[in-house]
Amino acid sequence: MRWGVVIFPGSNCDRDCLAVLQGVLGHEAIAIWHDERVLPTVDAVVLPGGFSYGDYLRSGAIAAFSPVMAEVARAARNGLPVLGICNGFQILCEAGLLPGALLTNADGLFHCHPARLRVESSCCLFTRGYASGEVVRIPIAHGQGRYYADPSTLDRLERSGSILFRYCDARGEPTPESNPNGSLANIAGISNEEGNVVGLMPHPERACEPLLASTDGLRLFLSVGSLPSGAESGTAYVRSAAG
């Protein structure tokens, strides 16, 4: 399994992701600079958290036009697994690889604390290590994480099972009180309809070691990494995209 972690100017969780992928999972993982015109051969791509381009214009708006993103988009359309975490989620929405947008938290505050999430679907490539309805704890750290989509898009997300995680309380109920940022329908993470592009505001890479109080994020990476033929198929996606 070979991962590529894209680094944009202002990314600040790229090393955390590399540390988990290499140090905790023992996978191969390389850093990819945003200015690359060719995507190296990888089985999956992570767009890490941070504040790319200082959040100028809109969070993720400028990174979405980075040279490497055209290649990531092309490979994603050919089935390459792509995971956007926090700012990476914002970039995927701005790039049109995921529907909707992420807005300033409803209360105007930056939220940095553990969050409870209910796994809504375990059918996705990235969530099949979880059980549907399971409650996990993964930290959030964002000022602009309020998911918004127009009613027809939201309806499509619900019907296609593309909502992967919702903020919830200890009983697994997605209550208004457990919604830290005012996200529509308590949405914390979604996928595209094909299930290979996933974005979420919480930081799974910060919940992969017992020392960090939760290891619930680990299965997100393992779900992809444990693919029996993952390496081959992922590599094939990139090769066919380049060809």
Partner: peptide
């Protein structure tokens, strides 16, 4: 397509 986001 760039300066504004038609979603919001």
């Amino acid at each position: 397509d760039f300066l504004s986001n038609p979603v919001v």
